[in-house]
Write a protein that binds this DNA or RNA. Structure first.
Length: 283
DNA sequence: AGCACA
């Protein structure tokens, strides 16, 4: 009755163990994608809103809002410290209603390539890129980017990575001064409030359906290398599980692939998987 | 958001 139609190719639910987006992703970067591409935003969205959307997500680094220049379309990029955090945020936020008035929902996918901007102390937690006054095609608010800011630090933060943009002459603007709003957050931008990003060879699995069983979990987990055992706890209400692996890397791999996927018994969306706070006790 | 077992 009530469930989200996920149709992203990035994750297969509980399907063949297949190493995806590892090395050799489109574009040929060095490693995994840590950046999310966000579309479906209302055209009056503010960079601060994007930042507030992502700032509480574990492993969040920074984000940027971009006026693409085509129409009034606005997109955003959110960068995380690692791939799995990006995946988790993707699953957590994809499809959420962003504006209750219009009912518009967020569309989030992995970016085609990582944002190249290096986080350095001094640069704000978010950034605005405005490509709107490109041609005479659409001039709605040309007065928005009148601050010919030569940021001088980071001229190469551009983006090849979105689905529907091919423009490059952007103007980067440091975050604290969010234009008209000026409501900068009084918070330390260098410290994202993170949940738990400490790797552990045991995984904590939440958001399971009330009827989930250890057998079902075992079946889903046992295809991953190094899997040892799983324990189901707290059957009353929302059950959680702990899955133990031989190695941290193997746990991480399983988490990455199963993150957000739904078991047959799930009814409240995909699994939420994190590294456990402590390793499963010896037996 | 929710992290036990000894």
């Amino acid at each position: 009755m009530s469930h989200q139609p996920y149709d992203h190719p990035y994750y297969l639910a509980v399907a063949p163990p297949m190493p995806d987006y590892g090395a050799g992703f489109a574009g040929g970067e060095k490693g995994l994608i840590n950046t999310l591409f966000v579309s479906g935003l209302p055209d009056d969205v503010k960079a601060r809103e994007i930042h507030n959307l992502f700032r509480r997500r574990p492993g969040f680094d920074s984000c940027q809002l971009k006026y693409t220049g085509r129409g009034n379309q606005v997109v955003a990029f959110a960068t995380f410290f690692n791939h799995q955090s990006a995946i988790a945020a993707l699953h957590a936020l994809n499809g959420v209603k962003f504006d209750p008035q219009t009912g518009s929902t967020l569309h989030i996918e992995l970016a085609r390539s990582n944002s190249r901007r290096k986080r350095k102390p001094g640069s704000g937690p978010y950034v605005v890129i405005d490509n709107r006054s490109n041609e005479a095609s659409n001039a709605q608010e040309p007065s928005s980017n009148d601050d010919g800011d030569s940021e001088s630090e980071d001229p190469s933060e551009d983006d090849n990575h979105e689905s529907g943009n091919e423009d490059d002459s952007e103007t980067a603007k440091s975050g604290e001064t969010t234009g008209a709003d000026g409501t900068a957050e009084a918070e330390n931008p260098e410290k994202p409030v993170d949940g738990n990003v400490n790797p552990c060879s045991t995984l904590f699995i939440a958001n399971l359906g009330p009827n989930c069983t250890e057998e079902e979990l075992t079946q889903a987990l046992s295809k991953y290398a190094g899997f040892k055992m799983v324990k189901l706890r707290g059957r009353s209400g929302m059950p959680v599980a702990f899955a133990d692996f031989e190695e941290i890397e193997q746990a991480g791999k399983a988490m990455e692939e199963l993150q957000g996927s739904q078991l047959a018994s799930s009814d409240r969306g995909g699994m939420n998987i994190e590294y456990a706070r402590s390793k499963m006790r010896k037996h």
